[in-house]
């Protein structure tokens, strides 16, 4: 999996600055839309570690996103984000550890189906038991923005901007962290497993442990994304855990580029932007989305991240 070089990183940093400056000129509606895209980017980026990093396609990734979101609902209302965010990560990681330990006994298509089954089981836990607070979802109290006793009180009018900055900061941290991770011995081993797992085993790698570690980390990061969505919208719903939510993230990865770490970020923004643009022109937005995605995938096999790279070779 390719990590953006110097020029690509510069472009990403400029794009981040642009998003950070949105509150200066954009409406609250568009700030919320940008937050939606940032959260989607975090979610797709976390899944990219599993899909693009280790070559495992999971359809149960939304379960960890949803658990991260429900962590806020399960914890006492209004406590600090310094508690809710680590708790969301930890709960999602524990769930990913359990699901991963069992489903990583399989590979390929069977891994896909096993993760789908576990994901749906977790979906129904929140959909059909009192734990989740109902199948229609529940409103939650946002965690307090409080760190080491320093509280950040936000007037209602500026909330959208504050959420945007938090989401942007977390996405940036996640991206930089994963970019660094891909340069480590662990990252290289992961790419080796993606390329040829049997060979890696013959070389002496306990590939299942490496894959499980990646799966758990991806789950924890999906938990961060879920936490951020719940915090931004002050609302959680079992739909966050549903398999089609995870499939949407796979679509974003495909759109943005399977082979690049920044692919899911491009894909998430393109996907959210596309959804918004198509509602402006038609009521059948799914149809437009589908056709555009199909065209992009056919025309750009390496996704949006592949633009400009394909011609140089």
């Amino acid at each position: 999996m390719l990590v953006a070089g110097r020029r690509g990183s510069l472009l990403l940093a400029l794009a981040a600055l642009l998003v950070a400056a949105l509150p200066l000129f954009a409406s609250n509606y568009h700030l919320q839309l940008a937050s939606t895209a940032l959260v989607a980017a975090m979610f797709a980026l976390s899944l990219q570690l599993v899909v693009g990093g280790a070559g495992m396609v999971s359809l149960g990734h939304a379960a960890f996103f949803g658990i991260g979101a429900y962590a806020i609902h399960l914890l006492p209302a209004g406590i600090s984000i310094a508690l809710t965010l680590p708790a969301a990560m930890a709960l999602a990681a524990i769930a990913a550890l359990a699901v991963g330990a069992l489903s990583l006994r399989t590979r390929g298509f069977f891994f896909l189906m096993t993760t789908l089954a576990f994901g749906q089981m977790l979906f129904f836990v929140f959909h059909d038991t009192p734990l989740g607070g109902g199948k229609d979802g529940v409103f939650i109290t946002r965690p307090a923005l409080e760190l080491f006793g320093l509280a950040w009180e936000i007037p209602r009018r500026q909330r959208a901007a504050a959420m945007l900055w938090i989401n942007l900061g977390l996405l940036a941290a996640m991206y930089v962290g994963l970019a660094l991770l891909m340069r480590t011995l662990f990252g290289r081993a992961l790419l080796g497993i993606r390329g040829n797992e049997d060979r890696m085993r013959a070389l002496g790698y306990d590939t299942r442990t490496v894959k499980l570690a990646a799966f758990v980390l991806a789950g924890a990061l999906a938990g961060v994304a879920g936490h951020c969505q719940a915090m931004t919208e002050a609302f959680v719903t079992p739909e966050m855990l549903a398999w089609h939510h995870g499939a949407e993230a796979l679509l974003m990865i495909l759109l943005g580029g399977l082979g690049a770490l920044h692919g899911p970020i491009l894909g998430a923004f393109a996907y959210v932007g596309l959804g918004e643009a198509s509602t402006l022109i038609t009521e059948r937005q799914r149809l437009v989305e589908g056709l555009v995605i199909l065209a992009v995938v056919l025309a750009l096999p390496r996704g949006l991240a592949g633009i400009g790279r394909g011609w140089r070779r």
Partner: peptide, 8 residues
């Protein structure tokens, strides 16, 4: 795991 995070 102790060596996972070394720069390759």
């Amino acid at each position: 795991p102790g060596r996972w995070l070394r720069d390759a």
